[in-house]
Design a binder for these strands. Structure first.
Lengths: 242, 242
DNA sequence: TCATGGTGATTGTTACACAATGTATCTTGA
DNA sequence: TCAAGATACATTGTGTAACAATCACCATGA
């Protein structure tokens, strides 16, 4: 095994464990508000508590999980405030991308590839796949800016945002309508007018936000049968808001 | 001790340790490229290796430290590429702040307070204090946007950026000239013209970047006597770039 | 000179134990 | 009946010790 191999990252247990848990969460294996018992979970994944805690700590910092000292780690219960803030923060990145890419007059190949994947998605694909395809397009736009730090920061936002989408009621026209909107965004960029592209992106973001929040309003409150109540009774779990 | 006290965060050893190490780093107690030996450092701070590793992992995620699997944790050696990227990413946040705050026509009290603190800084204040005062002003501008996530993300950028400033040659006119520039930024916002404010901010950012990089060019390479070489010899430590 | 393998040091991971804290239950008193 | 305090239990936070995995260095030999 060559020692100075460039770009080769040795995988540690913590890293692959973190990836596995992330995968689990983004596959809707858990319910908002659900509580992660360390011992139980460590046994499930066949690792020690220290390793599990290290992996969870990473996900907590990414915003994918919520932690309260001496109480535990929970799947976030994202509120309307969180959704608004996520859109608010995302807008800053996306509008920048719209501006810069419109000046270039192209969205880049990665975004087009992502859009193509989105379009080729089977109708029977699970909801998590749809969400993944949707966000991949937006991620590609930001990556096109060429800034590692902007990409990382945006990626964190997007991870958290996926939770919003994953746990929201699924609209039956979702793939079709969103694909059309994404195509329109691409078009607004290739047209080459930054001002107009920014305006269109701004509208798209506001529109998406409105639709998502409206969908949340259709259900009373997200059910969480497997929530913290499983601990022993049904303690009053204040909804952690970020 | 009341049990349901709102907003009260119980401090854990990991948290306070992380804060202490951050403080140490931002006080220039270490040298770029310096290597943190776990056992030694754990003994210094009087904690176990696990606790130290948890604290370091947090700082690594914030970009304040650099980690390589099975090799250890290092104080980052920020390159010109990193400096450019940090300014690139910061610009996205700062220009957004300029735009929004100019529409409001005010920078907010926190920014004014930060500026006042900067102006009252004693000439004999350590360099780290100057950097702190400088960045506090910018942080206040972003906080004024009222988005928790934007504040958090920008805060991470700023933490990393402080390293750039801390380890750069100190210009003798620093406090005076930068205070003047900050005042000009405030003025451009209170004037109430978003377009102009953005333009001025953009110029300020480009100007700062140019000056900082030029300063770096004056020294050959940052000396790091206490670097990784202390391990046993002087192994070829590839400069970790982010 | 260069590849090869050995050696010591350091990080990654585990197991176990205990302290600190949160939650629920029970007790007490008005 | 109900509020307030004491108690018990479960869980998280931290420490200690040990071992495995890996890295950097060094010696050997062709």
């Amino acid at each position: 095994m060559p020692r100075g191999t460039k770009g080769f990252k040795r995988v540690t247990t913590v890293d692959s464990l973190g990836a596995a848990i992330t995968e689990s969460i983004l596959s809707c294996s858990y319910v908002p508000g659900e509580w992660f018992r360390e011992e139980e979970m460590a046994a499930e994944y066949g690792v020690s508590r220290h390793t599990l805690r290290a992996a969870l700590a990473e996900l907590v910092q990414q915003g994918l999980l919520h932690k309260e000292p001496f109480r535990g780690v929970f799947v976030p219960r994202l509120t309307e405030t969180d959704t608004n803030d996520l859109y608010r923060a995302r807008a800053v990145f996306e509008l920048e991308a719209a501006r810069v890419l419109a000046q270039r007059g192209t969205v880049g190949t990665a975004a087009l590839d992502a859009l193509a994947l989105f379009e080729n998605l089977k109708p029977e694909s699970p909801w998590s796949r749809v969400v993944e395809a949707d966000t991949a397009f937006h991620r590609a736009l930001i990556d096109e800016l060429g800034s590692p730090r902007l990409s990382t920061l945006y990626s964190n936002l997007l991870t958290e945002f996926k939770l919003c989408l994953l746990y929201s009621p699924i609209p039956n026209d979702y793939p079709v309508s969103v694909i059309a909107k994404h195509r329109a965004l691409v078009e607004s960029i290739t047209r080459g007018d930054p001002e107009e592209a920014v305006a269109r992106f701004r509208f798209h973001i506001e529109d998406s936000k409105r639709l998502l929040i409206a969908r949340y309003a259709t259900v009373t409150t997200t059910d969480n049968a497997k929530g913290y109540a499983g601990r022993s009774g049904a303690p009053s779990m204040p909804a952690p808001a970020g």
